[in-house]
Nucleic acid binder design. Sequence first.
DNA 1: ATAGATGCAAACCCTTTGCACATTA
DNA 2: TAATGTGCAAAGGGTTTGCATCTAT
Lengths: 339, 339
Amino acid sequence: MEAPSAFVDRLRPAGGKRSSKRDLIVNVFLRQEGHLSADDLVDVLRREGHKSSRATVYRTLQWMADAGIARKVDFGDGRARFEHSYGQPRHFHLICKSCHRSSEFLSSDVEALLEEIAGVRGFELGQSVVQIHGRCDECRTGHRRRGQGDVPMERLFARDALRIAIQTERSGLDFYSRAARITKDARGRRVFRKLAAEEQEHLGKLEARYAELLAEDPDLESRPTFLFFKGAASGLFAAGAEELDKGADDRQALRIGIRCERGSHRFFKRYGERFEDSEGKRIFLEFADEEREHLELLIREYRSLAARESRAQSKAKAQAQPESKARRPRTASARRANT
Amino acid sequence: MEAPSAFVDRLRPAGGKRSSKRDLIVNVFLRQEGHLSADDLVDVLRREGHKSSRATVYRTLQWMADAGIARKVDFGDGRARFEHSYGQPRHFHLICKSCHRSSEFLSSDVEALLEEIAGVRGFELGQSVVQIHGRCDECRTGHRRRGQGDVPMERLFARDALRIAIQTERSGLDFYSRAARITKDARGRRVFRKLAAEEQEHLGKLEARYAELLAEDPDLESRPTFLFFKGAASGLFAAGAEELDKGADDRQALRIGIRCERGSHRFFKRYGERFEDSEGKRIFLEFADEEREHLELLIREYRSLAARESRAQSKAKAQAQPESKARRPRTASARRANT
DNA sequence: ATAGATGCAAACCCTTTGCACATTA
DNA sequence: TAATGTGCAAAGGGTTTGCATCTAT
């Protein structure tokens, strides 16, 4: 969000010389919110006391689009509009045909479907356009809602990413608490407790960051959802917890945990990578990292438990050589878990 | 698909007088496939030996759009294109930025997500635009694939609707066969057998229609998927069958069946209603109707079974008055099923 | 000094409109 | 006859371009 000029400097070598006029236009453009047409931008410049010819503005907008600073969007009203892409994840649009304003949203679910469709059709996916045309809340009801254009999209993205992460963390915490409760093996119990504690701690951090975000902008919480995210990973842990409740031994509990963490890790990694540079992306990728660590821990523990059991088993066998068969409850259940 | 002129006649009163020129332009337009710009249409007319001024063509295209004969689409290249909407469900586009051709697809899953998003944002949903911009298969690989523009979209729609219906029907058949096998009550077994037979019969009809479609156009099967339909109802019956395998008594089997049919009915009704007039729509709605009938039959049977059981129970109670407790296996399991 | 940026006006492209004329109801 | 469609050319709006002029490297 900060240092847009540095950002632009990085992009500058993309083509051409530095020039005070272009710098000016770029900076003014980056200060604007929403979707500007070329003429809108000319007006803003004029209002700020600078005069530039349309041609230059058009050329600069083209230059920004090429450099990746701006994105051209077409709302079908005959004129091209531009939005800056600095720190803004690619997003889709809701366009009110009545007041002609537009708001943004993002849906990984939609993106995933489009990706899949493109794949099936043998299409190399470029940019996708998703526009919902209709009448906005205000135009329908006549009531003015909390403003929409004021909050930087990145903040909304971070808010929603945090919400999803928190929800997932909560499910994870619940899962590990239950797992710790039902695990008989002392070491395994310790591992689950540790993971529960970590989830707890991370949850605390996420909630603190969430509170911080809200403090920076008290209106933030009441704004409409920006990031739609249906196939959330929280469901995985919830399902895992349900499985635990149906009765699971230590090994199964570990297996379920491994499955959940693996899914969760994939999920956040995948979606984190999909988004553009922003706090939301960072949250998802950090999350993915943490889940990976948990995953590795669980796998180590699973191996250790298996090794200990097999040692215990051969020991029991050796002791019970004269007897017909030693009971091997853990091994039996593990075999069941394998199917 | 047939009688487009009748279709146009119905639309005609929408405004204005009949005129030979307009008729001509409309008819020529309706004969074209794909997405025509105004100038494309002028060219086609000229090639067929008719001369019309651009102005008239523009006015006629506008008129067709107003009348609902044509839809204006904007691929972002500065010119408006038109596609005829007669018998064509609303659809989305894949646009090749290399060869500038475009193909269509339809995804109920995407539509459902957009609907949901619009709802959350308080948007009254109008038309949605979904465009996947990228490079098409041919442009990427250089290989020419089976042609894409030749098959009327409606036929693809019907093909895919049939495929989905057939898949669902198969799952349903499997479910009812299993249910019939495990049901102890003779009447209930008969009901399941009847339903299985009906599914079998309907399946046969659908497969016949599918074969017919393929016979009408042998290339049809090899064309890429047009209708993407993920949350298919077939999953419901498969899950139901799985539940049956885990052990279910007669009552539970009926309950599961009711749940599946209800879901299936809702599903096909909902999606059938979403599409525009076409064979695909008809298939879905017919399907929904059939599922509704099955649903009603199952519910009747469930009530009948419950009544018979309760009669048997009170009779047993009366007979066994002196004894300590009569065994009531069905009632006990029914109680379990309730939770 | 020279490649590149700017400003102006003209050109461009797609589309709509004004107006005289032709057609239809 | 009154209302509507058609053709032509002109105007519109958004955008690009040619060219002379500046300005950074």
